[in-house]
Each structure stands twice: as structure tokens, then as C-alpha cells.
Design a protein around this nucleic acid. Structure first.
Lengths: 115, 115
DNA sequence: AATGCATTTAACCGAACGGTTGACAACGCG
DNA sequence: CGCGTTGTCAACCGTTCGGTTAAATGCATT
């Protein structure tokens, strides 16, 4: 696992089990057993996945008696979205037009896009 | 490396060197040597990173004489953005009220759907 | 044909990943 | 207290990752 936060987030998301866990958590908090139920995998394995997600900041854990419920920490995902946003202009056509417009007015053309 | 495309993309993005390569490619095509220049790392290492990015669909390679320039394949990033979009409501302020509602029904508010 | 440049392939290495099993810790309850 | 439930820890295992060096490939130039 890398040390920089963005790498940790991407690495955490690069596993279908962990993404499924996140999807489940959009329904609300869940215990480890509840989270493990859909998977053909031991409990410690799920526990490890949760630890990866927690270290990446994508979830946080609670403590209620012997339960340690996990909940979504969605601002971490916003961090990923913000990184992606830098590339939006390279796929989004409507963003391209806006970008061209902004570049033109920055060049001092008051009438808008040129070409 | 996983077989499903989304995992491959996230895994490819989980490395700062590879993200730096993508950033460089927003300036336009580049040869392997050009891409390797900023990094304190051998050429084969960069070549491997490019292969990871290519298998993830994030870049494509050309062939001009002995050069194999890499270029950005931005629609692949859009795939990642689309996945993230499912979670926007969980961080975006404009969805705060919906989020509060969902949290209430999850606590067992009998007026809402049950988990 | 020989040289030189750009890039990839092959073999190898240590560290991290994703999983297992078995033991252990923490808590609620009879 | 003793017990069952919940979850983590520790050790281990095979595979993948990210890097290296050395050799091979592809192409242009002379």
C-alpha cells in the first residue's frame, strides 16, 4: 500500500469485494457479519478488507458492545472525484466547448470563441 | 491484476508514477523516453507502467518508426467517473436532505422503508 | 552491412496482496 | 462464572507488484 492518500484510495477501490462493501454501506451501517454474508470468504478476510477501506479513509468504524459497525465516509470519495475532475475536459464535449471559450476570453478576445 | 475492467482501471490509477504519466499525456502524445525523463527509474520500469495503463484502457499506443508514442484514452476515465457518480449523493451538499432522510429510515423510523 | 537509438522481453528479487486456519479478546447473558 | 457471539490477531501461503539488469528486437542512417 502506498503512503499518499490518493493512491491508498484508488488501491482500496481496485477490488470488487471492497467496492461491493461500499455499495452495501450506502444502505447504512452494517456489522462485519452482515457485510461478510454475501461473500464466499472467511470473516478475517472481510475484516482485512475493512481495514484497507478504513486506512484509505473510505469508511469509519464504530463500537457497540461486541459489534464494530462500519459506515461510509463519503468525503473520501469526493477526493477521488476531484482528482478525476481535472480530466473531465478530455472526455466531456460540453466541457470542451466551455474550455475553448474560457481560453479565448483569457486571450483577450471579448467576443468569445474564435475558430 | 483483476480481470474486471473497473478494477483494472482503479489499480492502474493507484500508482503515483502512472498518474503522473497520465497528467503528462494531457499535454499530448509522448514517447517512452519523454515520459520516463522526470522519473528516477529505468526505462523498462516505465514501459511496464505503460503496459498497465494500456491494459486498463487508459492509454493507447502508436507506432512511428522506432517510437511507440502513448496517448490518453479519456473515455476510460469517464467509466471511472460514472462509477463514482453513484456516490455523489453521499457527499454532495445538495443531497444533504435526502441523506438525512435515508439515515432516519435506517434507524427504524416506521414511516419509511425497512432495510 | 554495421552502427546507433528506442523500446521491449526475460529473468530475477523483495515486498505487498488476498486469502486461509487457529488462537484469542471483548462483550452480553443465563 | 461460564458460554455463545462477534470480531481481530498471528502465522503462514501462493500470487502479483514494482523495480532491477542484461539481452533482444525494430527501425533509420551511414
Amino acid at each position: 500500500m502506498q503512503t499518499d492518500p490518493l493512491s491508498a484510495k484508488f488501491a482500496a477501490l481496485a477490488d470488487p469485494t471492497r467496492r461491493a462493501i461500499l455499495a452495501r454501506l450506502t444502505q447504512g451501517e452494517a456489522s462485519v457479519n452482515e457485510l461478510a454474508e454475501p461473500f464466499d470468504m472467511s470473516l478475517p478476510a472481510v475484516s482485512k478488507h475493512l481495514k484497507v477501506l478504513e486506512k484509505a479513509g473510505l469508511i469509519s468504524r464504530g463500537k457497540e458492545a461486541q459489534w464494530r459497525p462500519a459506515r461510509l465516509e463519503p468525503m473520501a470519495l469526493k477526493g477521488v472525484a476531484d482528482w478525476l475532475e481535472h480530466y473531465r475536459r478530455y472526455w466531456d464535449a460540453s466541457f470542451d466547448r466551455l474550455d475553448a471559450y474560457l481560453k479565448n476570453i483569457q486571450k483577450g478576445d471579448p467576443s468569445g470563441p474564435r475558430n
